[in-house]
């Protein structure tokens, strides 16, 4: 009986934590990740979700020539550093942050407009916790005023 009781408490405590994480995702994107874009101007789009260690996400976007972009990908404190790659239609890896000290940002411009795919991965953490950690991951874009 006591064991069942603890399991119930654990289950609902985890549910509550998960809800809080979801509610805080918007705040995380706006108040923390957006700062990574400075001095670029945030485009205003919102791409954020709760991800768990081991989970991956993809984002598809068209980028245009003549614009200077900054990509910022941030994970909340509960998560290990987020890994990401930027890939073109020919599957060429144009950027891999694991080769750049797991940088949260990447500044780039394009000679020609094209669609790119951004692959995001939450690696497994080093902790020996029984449950994989979950937290907010935000993907944000900034650009420069061309004038």
């Amino acid at each position: 009986m006591r064991r069942t009781y603890h399991l119930i408490i654990l289950f609902f405590a985890l549910s509550f934590i998960s809800y809080n994480a979801s509610a805080q995702c918007k705040g995380f994107a706006k108040k923390i990740c957006k700062l990574e874009l400075i001095p670029y101007i945030h485009d205003g789009n919102y791409h954020a979700a709760i991800l768990t260690e081991g989970e991956e996400a993809e984002l598809y976007k068209t980028f245009y020539s003549g614009q200077e972009y900054r990509l910022a990908i941030c994970g909340s404190d509960a998560l290990p550093d987020i890994e990401f790659q930027v890939i073109d239609a020919y599957k060429n890896v144009l950027y891999d942050n694991t080769e750049n000290n797991l940088s949260r940002i990447w500044d780039f411009s394009l000679e020609a407009s094209q669609q790119l795919k951004i692959m995001v991965k939450v690696p497994m953490g080093d902790t020996e916790s029984e449950y994989p950690a979950s937290g907010c991951v935000a993907i944000m874009f900034g650009f420069k005023d061309t004038e």
């Binding site: 791409h47 979700a49 989970e55 996400a57 984002l59 976007k61 650009f143």
Partner: peptide, 15 residues
């Protein structure tokens, strides 16, 4: 995987 599609925002479109 989780998939996001990103369109140019109004601000980016105007830019």
């Amino acid at each position: 995987k989780k998939i996001f599609y990103s369109l140019p925002s109004p601000l980016e479109t105007a830019m």
